[in-house]
Design a protein around this nucleic acid. Sequence first.
DNA 1: AAATATATATCAACATATTGATGCGATGCT
DNA 2: AGCATCGCATCAATATGTTGATATATATTT
Lengths: 163, 163
Amino acid sequence: MKEAAKALPSKPTEVSREPGAINNRIFFRLFQLGNTLQRQAFKELGISTVQWAMLGALSRPRAEEGMSLADLSDYLLVSRQNLDGVLKRLERDGYLVRITDEVDRRARIVKLTPEGRRFWTSLQPKIYEFYRQAMVQFRFDDTVAFVHYLNMLQADLQDVELP
Amino acid sequence: MKEAAKALPSKPTEVSREPGAINNRIFFRLFQLGNTLQRQAFKELGISTVQWAMLGALSRPRAEEGMSLADLSDYLLVSRQNLDGVLKRLERDGYLVRITDEVDRRARIVKLTPEGRRFWTSLQPKIYEFYRQAMVQFRFDDTVAFVHYLNMLQADLQDVELP
DNA sequence: AAATATATATCAACATATTGATGCGATGCT
DNA sequence: AGCATCGCATCAATATGTTGATATATATTT
């Protein structure tokens, strides 16, 4: 993939002071970032972004007893059908299992296997380095502001409803 | 798609002051935003994000004479093969054409058709309203800072290379 | 007990995205 | 003229993502 994006303005003062122009750039850049993140994650970490998010979700202490499919879908914000496909591949690779919930036998609980936990643990140094290189220009205050903006956008983006 | 993301912290002071934790949230949120943007764009605007980016690219004054496939691929940061698929569908819908370059007959130039320009023009009010709702919490200074952070990340993310 | 609701699995159709590869026509170089 | 290179089209395999729909097992309500 050739590197053309660097030719675009990279300093605030270079951006047109027209809201429409900035919004165009914001959403265009989000589109590009989604693809670039997906590609770089797969190339450098060997996992896709949804696998990354899923393994991350399941490795949290609060998910030690696993997560229901409904909760996982809600957490990741992907459809049930898509979730099934991703789960199947991670099951195939031995990283997680689906277990029938003992309380509600309709529900399925997804848990990391010991192999899955080992895999996740082995990824940590790589993920740390990935962050270090990707965020090299960000100071701590920048990361705080950045995640704040991302959260703000996510909250309202999903509620967008045109007439 | 149920709305669970709102349960997540949305204020800077609520984010752990641990760089790793913030980075986890930044990249997780980018993953979610990519999907949410794709879904909302299709649902509310009737076009996918790559179609949006492509139509936007081709409607710029500097692209009035069209863009080569190579330039379009570089600009959008998608593979040639993927570009071909997206172009085929937009050609099918009559929004653009591929023309042989008269200078280098190996090259193809992609241009919007009059129908494509009309379609793009008809989208503008919707896109404006999309931005207005999605960015409702952003003040002008926020948008400037935000696009600055997105540019910064894009620049370094594509250069990430793990040992 | 019967009806209704829920959680999940699965199907179908389609779109978007990647890498690696091959082939063809055109261009550039020797 | 011949050869190397280029720009693109296409193929193959795979993954991720959506909506709408159907089916099954289980839970809840009447």
